[in-house]
Design a protein around this nucleic acid. Structure first.
Length: 419
DNA sequence: TCTGGGGTCCTAGGACCC
DNA sequence: TCTGGGGTCCTAGGACCC
């Protein structure tokens, strides 16, 4: 059996952070808002129990807020980042860690025993050192670990830890879990799966993987494998370098004047460039976008973006600002009420995107592991095509890695679209 | 009146070359 | 002028995550 993973996930993270310094708010319903206080991005358990959904605009829940005395906070990302670092430092003392998001981390539990007790120990330690409650899910794959974590939060009797290594237990839990709860199954896939009569996670796990590949993608296929206990997504101990840095905002008040919007875009560019330097990276391309609100039915709508390349990779504010303002001027149109704008910097290093097409099947590959699988498929079929988005050096690198001769890049027919 | 921000990966298909 | 295979490069956009 493959070595088990755990995922430790903080409960209602932003809400728990706010409570750390306001202990009197324990058991008081509490929400945290996005920038500009536009919508709800975090909810305490009491608020979740009231049925208030993640991401709803504030104005839609004003009545509930009054009625139930919900405490409302603007978000404080500096604080959350700080608390997150402390949680991660505490988890690091246990075992190899992959920090997955601000409030969750995967842990490598290979060689450990008494995993339920171990999970309880993780919980108790984080609570004691940082004061934030976490729940722990344990399973042979990351996707099942996420499912175990879901169960540990949903069912109080688990006391915040679920060990899902037993296949029979996996089956039972899969059978009572809606397919939408599975990591990697979003809104669109849920709708589509339900139309096929796939309602529970178990239904999905029992689907034929080739069908999944045909109707959906390699990504969902991987999810199905993981639900069946076959580990496809490994622990990534060192974080991969960023591929893009984005700075964007919706405006509380709409902008209509050239000078105002231009200044805002320049601020974004400067901030993005700062981030670039913090990460020790150089950007080669920049993109600027501006748009009116899709909810604003009154005025005319406008949505445009422009992308441009620097002559050489750079993290110099003036150089990037010069490009960004030029791009902005290309897309600026007078007469609209702009609601959002942003700047994206990218292509820091050789692009990692590689796509492989095979006769009668397609495999999209972004990771080296899958690439090797793809190479095997090519070798078996004796034909295929590897398509490289991005630049030359990436291709040369891969050909060398995979020990492939250039002959393998011969294209084989076109691939019919499967409906 | 008021609708987040920051990411990743995969796929289709157009433009262009011979 | 049209059709067609074979190939490269790039971009838009859709799906997902927190």
């Amino acid at each position: 059996m493959s070595s088990p993973f755990a995922i430790a996930d903080c409960n209602n993270f932003y809400a728990s952070c706010e409570r750390l310094f306001r202990p009197e708010l324990k058991n008081v319903p509490l929400i945290v808002l996005s920038n500009n206080d536009g919508c709800v991005v975090a909810r305490s358990q009491e608020v979740k129990d009231l049925g208030i959904k993640m991401g709803v605009p504030l104005f839609k829940v004003q009545d509930e807020i009054k009625q139930h005395g919900i405490q409302v906070f603007s978000s404080n990302y500096t604080l959350y980042g700080d608390i997150s670092a402390r949680v991660m430092q505490t988890l690091e003392q246990f075992t190899q860690l992959e920090i997955y998001s601000i409030d969750e981390a995967f842990l490598d539990l290979s060689g450990m025993s008494a995993l339920n007790d171990y999970g309880q120990k993780i919980r108790a330690t984080v609570l004691q050192h940082v004061g934030v409650p976490v729940c722990v899910g344990i399973a042979p794959t990351k996707t099942l670990a996420k499912l175990a974590n879901y169960a540990s939060k949903k069912f109080k009797a688990t006391r915040g830890v679920v060990d899902l290594r037993d296949p029979e237990r996996q089956r039972r839990l899969l059978g009572i879990t809606p397919v939408a709860e599975i990591w990697g199954v979003g809104r669109k896939h849920t709708q589509s799966l339900q139309r096929r009569g796939i309602n529970t996670a178990l239904d999905l796990a029992q689907m034929d993987r080739h069908q999944i590949r045909r109707f959906y993608s390699v990504v969902l296929e991987r999810t199905v494998c993981e639900l069946n206990g076959e580990s496809c997504i490994g622990l990534e101990e060192s974080p991969a370098p960023r591929q893009q840095i984005v700075c964007s905002r919706s405006f509380g008040e709409k902008l209509t004047r050239y000078a105002d919007l231009r200044e805002t875009v320049c601020e974004f560019a400067a901030r993005a460039t700062e981030k670039l330097r913090t990460h020790n990276q150089l950007a080669l391309v920049a993109q600027v976008f501006i748009r009116t609100s899709p909810f604003d039915k009154a005025g005319p709508s406008y949505d445009n973006a422009a992308t441009g390349k620097l002559t050489s990779p750079s993290s110099d504010t003036r150089t990037i600002l010069e490009l960004v303002t030029r791009l902005f001027d290309m897309i600026w149109r007078d007469g609209y009420r702009y609601a959002k704008a942003g700047v994206m910097l990218g292509e820091f290093c050789s692009p990692q995107h590689v796509q492989l097409n095979l006769f009668e099947s397609r495999v999209g590959c972004a990771q080296q592991d899958n690439l090797m699988q793809a190479v095997d498929s090519i070798n078996q079929n004796g034909k295929g095509k590897i398509w490289f988005g991005g630049q030359r050096p990436q291709k040369d690198w891969f050909m060398k890695q995979a020990n492939l001769s250039p002959a393998y890049t011969t294209r084989w027919g076109s691939i019919p679209k499967v409906k």
